[in-house]
């Protein structure tokens, strides 16, 4: 329901600047993901929006209204924490009702809202339990339910999946995506260091590094047109191959980037580059070949299906035309990707 604007937001802890001037607009009803390596300030940025930390300078606006000094509970936000942060001594029902009870909601309204949220997340049979009687996945649902009950205009998630095991993580990810579709008018901001979560959930992703925004865009934009070397390397798994030296110079750039799926194994005559296979990872559906081309790191080639390549064998590679990313000495992209050959 809210359009969020950050204008030159700075956060400093003493002398250490953690957020170094962030300008960002998050649209109404959008699912925005903050992603970046640890220590990049993504959680701090979320906490600034939540009001758990005070903004050192700059403005935070919700629908044009300045929020810098508004109490967290008055901002119309709800937050889901990494560690769930349920009140251990309250039942699930009391946990979900606590915020509204403090706000002075009537008993009927409170009851109706809690039950609606519980139904939405299929936790209505757990309402009388204590948090310690629930599994990790159930606890996270209750935490989400508590947030829904508040009927927020902005939903904040602080790495909500990192305490869950792999299978549960995928299931809960789906759950959150579903939630976003059901609550179309609620703006959601989600913090993660996992770029897979970012790619699958986000309407738009904001890549942060060292307290600054590196790039904001849809997952596809970030994947296909990274704004710089850092984003190119951070988004996508396996990491984009970076080739420097003479090969890059041939293409008129300092660093040549090519994703693993944009390299084809070809015959000797067709091959542009060559190298020896030093390692192979078989993921069942895909094969990752690590090819040593005499560069500082082996180049990763992704091949669908089974590939019979022996260790140490020489292979020839050809990058797919139009799929090369060129970066200059400062890590900035050189526009108009040059076709290979």
């Amino acid at each position: 329901m809210a359009n969020i604007q950050l204008r030159n937001v700075v956060k400093a802890f003493g002398a250490a600047k953690v957020i170094k001037g962030v300008d960002l607009e998050i649209r109404r009803g959008e699912f925005m993901v903050f992603v970046g390596p640890s220590g990049c300030g993504k959680s701090t940025l979320l906490r600034l929006i939540a009001g758990l930390e005070t903004i050192t300078s700059g403005d935070l606006l919700f629908d044009g209204e300045r929020m810098n000094s508004v109490l967290p509970s008055k901002r119309g936000i709800a937050m889901v924490f990494q560690s769930y942060a349920l009140y251990p001594h309250m039942t699930v029902y009391e946990n979900m009702a606590f915020g509204m009870k403090l706000a002075g909601a009537s008993k009927e309204e409170l009851d109706a809202r809690v039950r609606r949220a519980a139904r939405m997340l299929q936790i209505d049979h757990l309402l009388e339990r204590l948090p310690r009687q629930l599994s990790g996945g159930q606890r996270q649902r209750v935490a989400i339910g508590r947030a829904i009950t508040r009927d927020p205009r902005v939903f904040l998630f602080d790495e909500p999946l990192s305490n869950l095991d792999a299978a549960l993580r995928v299931a809960t990810r789906l759950e959150i995506a579903k939630l976003h579709h059901e609550m179309r008018d609620v703006t959601m901001i989600y913090v993660t260091h996992d770029q897979v979560e970012a790619m699958t959930l986000a309407d738009r992703i904001c890549v942060l590094r060292d307290g600054r925004v590196e790039q904001v865009g849809t997952p596809a934009e970030l994947y296909d047109h990274p704004a710089n070397l850092f984003v190119a390397g951070f988004i996508g798994s396996p990491r984009m191959n970076f080739i420097e030296g003479p090969i890059a110079a041939e293409h008129g750039c300092a660093t040549l980037g090519v994703r693993s799926e944009h390299l084809d194994l070809v015959s000797e005559e067709e091959g542009t580059w060559t190298g020896r296979v030093v390692h192979a990872e078989d993921l069942g559906s895909d094969n990752y070949l690590f090819v040593d081309m005499g560069l500082s790191e082996p180049v990763i080639v992704r091949q669908p299906g089974k590939v019979a390549v022996a260790m140490g064998e020489q292979v020839w590679l050809r990058p797919q035309p139009g799929r090369l990313h060129r970066f200059d000495g400062n890590g900035q992209p050189i526009p108009v990707p040059m076709a290979a050959e």
């Binding site: 939540a50 758990l52 109490l71 967290p72 509970s73 008055k74 936000i77 709800a78 937050m79 924490f81 990494q82 560690s83 769930y84 942060a85 349920l86 009140y87 251990p88 606590f98 915020g99 403090l102 706000a103 508590r146 508040r150």
Partner: peptide, 14 residues
């Protein structure tokens, strides 16, 4: 006591 519980309470308006 976990700090998140306190922060959750702050978000709840406590």
């Amino acid at each position: 006591l976990p700090i998140e519980i306190e922060e959750a309470a702050i978000m709840d308006g406590a």
